[in-house]
Design a protein around this nucleic acid. Structure first.
Length: 344
DNA sequence: CATACGTGGAG
DNA sequence: TCTCCAAGTAT
């Protein structure tokens, strides 16, 4: 959970998670569907899948929890950093860790101006950290180094006055002798690939159900959710029916595209089997992923089925698309991605 | 080796 | 509003 994610963000998820699955065996018995649900909102959802797969692997092999870096590295989702962290902190193996904090601290300490993403440079950081790690308390040492980066040797305004190792910091020393050098010049900035700009149209489809024993009650309603493909962005997660537009489009054009999608995928056709109770253009917002800037147009579409829900359910093509209908209160309590929650 | 892969807090 | 980046990993 902590990979690329702040502790503050993780805490709530961690506590809920550990309550639901107190042991690795419990987790190994959970479905990916449940795991995704519990992870929803945390991001980088492959981590959840790997965690699930990792738990299954460890339980299946029956050898207990892997206790060395080399054994840990075989578990999906555990890379160099996590293996080093677990091995040193939990099992006192004398191995280093290199995360974003460590890279920042070491690149300043040694005034390393090479691209910190470059694989040769990364190796250098690992070698440096390995050389430094305290053989008596590797876990404490590693956490100290990361904490130094998190609290004092911070990205923007490092507190060099409070730094316990400022005396040996090459970046600080350089900055004192050369006005053109700043401690924050290290690590050097990496040019990142620019975000793709996508445009989509999401349609919140609410289907009114008329009860047979109609006792003047409010009709129940359900919302249509679609499961995303098992690979790629937000893999296997639920969302409101949505389509990616090739270019910016006006409401009429968007509705045409949405209608076609709803007809093809769900056999929802106002000309045949349903009537539109309400259709409203809700507005738009921008949702930002790590590598995509997605503008989402949102519509609310309230329908009433002519033949009743059961008829419609049975006529669905179960093969092409995975979908489900959920009631309003189930919807608000279910795990949804951040973007889907904004749409809602 | 470069890129895909979320989300949110801080300045 | 924009930039930066967080206890990274897999492909």
């Amino acid at each position: 959970m902590l990979q690329q994610t702040r502790v503050q963000t993780v805490i709530e998820y961690y506590n809920r998670w550990m309550k639901k699955w107190p042991t690795i065996r419990h987790l190994s018995e959970a479905s990916l569907e449940e795991v995704n649900e519990m992870w929803a909102g945390l991001g980088y959802y492959r981590r959840a899948r790997f965690l699930s797969e990792g738990a299954k692997m460890i339980v299946a092999e029956g050898g207990g929890f892997p206790g060395t870096v080399s054994a840990l590295r075989k578990v999906p989702g555990i890379g160099n950093y996590t293996a080093g962290a677990i091995a040193s902190i939990a099992f006192k193996e004398v191995v280093p860790v290199v995360d974003g904090n460590v890279i920042r601290v070491l690149s300043r300490q040694k005034a390393i101006s090479a691209n910190p993403k470059d694989s040769l440079t990364v190796k250098k950081f690992w070698a440096l950290a390995a050389q430094l790690v305290d053989p008596c308390r590797p876990g404490d040492f590693n956490q100290s180094l990361m904490e130094l980066g998190a609290v004092i040797c911070t990205p923007l305004n490092p507190d060099c006055k409070s730094c316990p190792v400022s005396a040996q910091c090459r970046a600080l020393s350089m900055s004192k002798h050369d006005n053109s050098v700043l401690v924050t010049d290290f690590p050097t900035k990496v040019v990142k690939t620019k975000q793709r700009h996508d445009i989509s149209s999401a349609c919140v489809v609410e289907i009114l159900e008329t009860k047979d024993e109609s006792e003047e009650k409010q009709p129940n309603s359900v919302f249509l959710l679609v499961k995303r493909p098992d690979e790629g962005l937000l893999a296997g997660l639920w969302e409101f029916p949505s389509i990616i537009l090739k270019e910016e489009a006006n409401l009429t054009t968007r509705r045409k595209a949405t209608d076609s999608f709803l007809k093809k995928s769900f056999n929802l056709d106002p000309k045949k089997n349903c009537s539109i109770v309400l259709r409203e253009d809700v507005g738009e917002f921008v949702h930002v992923f790590s590598h995509i800037r997605l503008k989402i147009h949102v519509e609310l579409l309230i329908l009433r089925l002519k033949g009743g829900t059961n008829d419609w359910f049975e006529k669905q093509d179960k093969g092409t698309i995975t979908w489900k209908c959920v009631e309003s209160n189930a919807l608000s309590s279910m795990g949804l991605t951040s973007g889907v929650r904004k749409v809602m």
